[in-house]
């Protein structure tokens, strides 16, 4: 069992609303402590919301999985229905491996928590102007467990020529709720998601390792609906690999991108620093899986329930990060 203490900002609740959220978290934590990571917050009907958090069109229940048709022998390529190509992925792994091994020197902890067969939603913190955590997590799992990981990301990628295609071949999928559901439930795949999104990668160096808001908790609802566990992952090192010192709002608006950063790398290496990472030591800790007792495939789930679980997962990752930082002697070694 992991330490489940409260992080700083929740330590002295100031207002009644904070008190309430504090208690909600506390309740979840206790529920979790009690019975082996199974969350059950009572009947959902009592506190049900009016609308699903993540609107998914009505789905006929007991949908049969739709495996790829057996025409391997008449296909030329190996691009799967999601656009991922194992061939491209293995080339990418070969190229990335030295970086993974000798630059970031990635160290894993608790990788046995990741299932070797069934679907699971991997939830991690997100950092670095050009996030370096997603490739490291995907590379580590694919080399150690030998199964693919699909990374959910912004719609932005689908608009980028060449980069978008490479991203898709390497296992990137746009974060549409239906895509996530299909991957998890019907294809039983591993799906990696960063609920912080661009708020996580776009944060300044001074805010490092402080988790941003976890969206609206949509990832929890999808895991509940797909009936798969959530596996929280805490990554230390990505923040220092490409820290953002300043951000230009005007430039970001001009270019139509989420944020336009000036990174430490740019100051050190000049224009090359746009791409070159600093050799921060990566530590990745996989936390215990969280199973939900909620019935899968419901039209909607209680918002309170979803937000409680989302907040609890955020707290766990935050706590794991603080724990890992406490024992970290050097950023680089």
């Amino acid at each position: 069992m992991l330490p489940c203490g409260m992080p700083g900002h929740l330590d002295d609740p100031k207002s009644t609303t904070e008190q309430a959220s504090y208690e909600a978290v506390q309740r979840v934590m206790e529920a979790v402590k009690g019975e082996e990571n199974v969350i059950d917050l009572g009947p959902s009907a009592e506190q049900s919301s009016t609308r699903a958090l993540v609107p998914l069109p009505a789905r006929r229940s007991r949908e049969l999985p739709d495996p790829e048709p057996p025409d391997r022998e008449i296909r030329r390529g190996d691009v799967d229905p999601w656009g991922r190509s194992e061939r491209v992925r293995s080339i990418a792994r070969r190229m990335y491996d030295p970086l993974y091994r000798y630059w970031f020197r990635v160290q894993w902890e608790g990788i046995e928590h990741i299932p070797t067969e069934s679907g699971a939603l991997l939830v991690s913190n997100h950092a670095g102007a050009i996030p370096s955590d997603a490739p490291a997590i995907m590379h580590g799992i694919e080399t150690q467990l030998g199964r693919p990981v699909y990374g959910l990301a912004e719609y932005l990628f689908r608009d980028l020529p060449a980069i978008g295609t490479l991203w898709s071949r390497a296992g990137g999928v746009t974060a549409h709720p239906d895509n996530a559901y299909r991957l998890l439930k019907e294809d039983q795949q591993l799906v990696l998601v960063f609920p912080e999104g661009a708020k996580g990668t776009g944060k300044l160096y001074k805010d490092r390792y402080r988790l941003a808001r976890f969206g609206r908790g949509g990832f929890v609802e999808i895991a509940m609906r797909a009936g798969v566990p959530i596996i929280p992952i805490a990554v230390v090192g990505a923040e220092e690999s490409m820290p953002i010192l300043f951000k230009s709002k005007r430039l970001a608006n001009l270019l139509g991108i989420p944020y336009a950063p000036i990174t430490a790398n740019m100051l050190m290496f000049g224009p090359l620093g746009g791409l070159a990472y600093l050799p921060a030591k990566f530590r990745i800790r996989v936390l215990e899986p969280i199973h939900f007792t909620a019935e899968p495939d419901q039209e909607r789930y209680s918002r309170a329930r979803v937000m409680d679980a989302s907040e609890m997962i955020r707290e766990r990752i935050q706590e794991a990060l603080y724990d890992m930082l406490r024992s970290r002697r050097s950023t680089w070694w």
Partner: peptide, 10 residues
């Protein structure tokens, strides 16, 4: 770009 990867009828 915002399309789901698989369109269902509804």
């Amino acid at each position: 770009k915002r399309d789901p990867y698989f369109f269902r009828e509804e």
